[in-house]
Design a protein around this nucleic acid. Structure first.
Lengths: 129, 129
DNA sequence: TTTATAATTGGAATCATTCTAAATTCATAT
DNA sequence: ATATGAATTTAGAATGATTCCAATTATAAA
């Protein structure tokens, strides 16, 4: 380990890949990119690292629709818009009214962790076609 | 077909199973229940029926976290709360302010379809333990 | 250094879902 | 009623994402 924080070079590489990408990468895409930086890295390690980085709060997991889980460097709260046609996923920063959060907490009786809004519709590309 | 609407007895059975359940069932759970009502039904047909019923708008699909897709009889817009600990998923009816929808549409440049809010946190059971 | 603990590896295993090809059922026009 | 073509169902194989496992290697602590 490096710096006694559990950040091995494999994990660091996986984290770097996610941080340097603007996309929401799948585990497979992370694997391909990571292998370019660290040729010997195995698929299992990528999965292990993703799990580790997620529980440590370094990355976030996004999953919508039918396809694979995607990973995201963005750690601040944010929302999503997903295209019903091409499945494109974009980030969105909305200001969620406090009242909505309290209402959600009261109705559900949950102890609130995070709140997130998802807009589904047609992305600009799919609108025009 | 029955009534020329594509509602075969297999599809009707699948729909009935979903309508009679209070839970968000996985395809596998739907299969098990459907087989009790219609012993010969196959797994593939359950999947076919789910896809059909979904595109026809008779059921809704819910997917969060890592596990399998779940199906839902509820057709009106609604929100969700998910437990970070036990993954329990509950329905929630919130009134989403119009301003939030317009803001989301403007920022994303999407043509709005639906909007949905997700609260993550600890469910009542997991809170107390 | 030895020793214990944690991480990595490659491959096998699992699980959800889709595909395929053959058999069956259905809708429609005769 | 019957023939014909289209849609549906079926069983099982195939795929794809993810996890598990046992063996090896690296790391941290004594």
């Amino acid at each position: 380990m490096i710096g006694s924080l559990g950040l091995t070079k494999q994990r660091t590489t996986v984290l770097q890949v996610i941080r340097e990408s603007d996309e929401h990468l799948t585990a497979n895409e992370v694997f391909e990119d990571a292998r370019r930086l660290l040729p010997g890295i195995s698929f299992a390690t990528v999965y292990n690292s993703l799990r580790y980085l997620k529980t440590e709060g370094h990355i976030a997991e996004v999953r919508f629709g039918a396809d694979a889980t995607r990973y995201d460097r963005k750690l601040t709260r944010h929302d999503h818009a997903i295209c019903n046609n091409c499945e494109k996923l974009v980030d969105l920063d909305l200001q969620i009214p406090v009242g909505l959060l309290t209402e959600a907490t009261e109705l559900s009786k949950f102890e609130a962790g995070s709140i997130e809004l998802t807009l589904r519709g047609l992305c600009p590309d799919c609108r025009s076609n």
